[in-house]
Amino acid sequence: MEAIKTVNLSKKYKTKTAVNNLNLTIHKGELYALLGVNGAGKSTTIKMLSCLTQPTSGDAELMGHSILNETDKVKELINVSPQETAVAAKLSVRENLEFIARIYGSNKKEARDKTDKIIEEFSLGEIEKSKASTLSGGWQRRLSIAMALITEPEVLFLDEPTLGLDVLARRELWNVIEKLKGKMTIILTTHYLEEAESLADRIGIMARGVLCAEGTADELKAKAGNDNFEEAFITLAGEALK
């Protein structure tokens, strides 16, 4: 089944076309990485798919619901971990998690139970009473992703989830993301090519608002004629930018 299907999805800002006639299909349960240099259109694509911004033309369906006409339904099914850590600074870890669970429809008891479960899964027990603002960058990012998962979304958007984290914190988050594979559809944007290569089932490369290459990491390397994924990316994205 298709979790996401975009049809000629486009976004224009005055004179700039950020996304141009994007036709993308992502299957249910797939982890799809969206790669591209700065300004390629990745974040705009995520913004449109998560109903943050309206497309100029075209449409997309998430789990069969249009982002244009069924925004409320789409919002119930998705969750987003934005590029920057998105936590309520003055709330504790537990309060942040319970708050998000509740605005997605859980009653008090359900929210408490879901919070207990996710605190255990993300090993947040030792900091559950700490205010989010007092946590390190790594812990805040971990909390931010836990907040996206507590609603048990069918489609999860991870926008640069490991940006700015040290190597150890990044690897820990990779393990977390790895465990999610197959449980939900995940769209991951990242600048770390090894992250996409290691985690993604399929990878899409965007350049100048267009999807210029798509496939598994091995397929993309074969297409570029290079065994090194970073070199393959440079070749494929570079060709599109010429």
Binding site: C51, L52, D72, N79, V80, Q83, V87, I100
Partner: peptide
């Protein structure tokens, strides 16, 4: 100005 609000904009609120 926060990403937290960005998160809430994608929620059913």
């Amino acid at each position: 100005t926060t990403s937290f609000m960005l998160r809430l904009f994608t929620s059913p609120l």
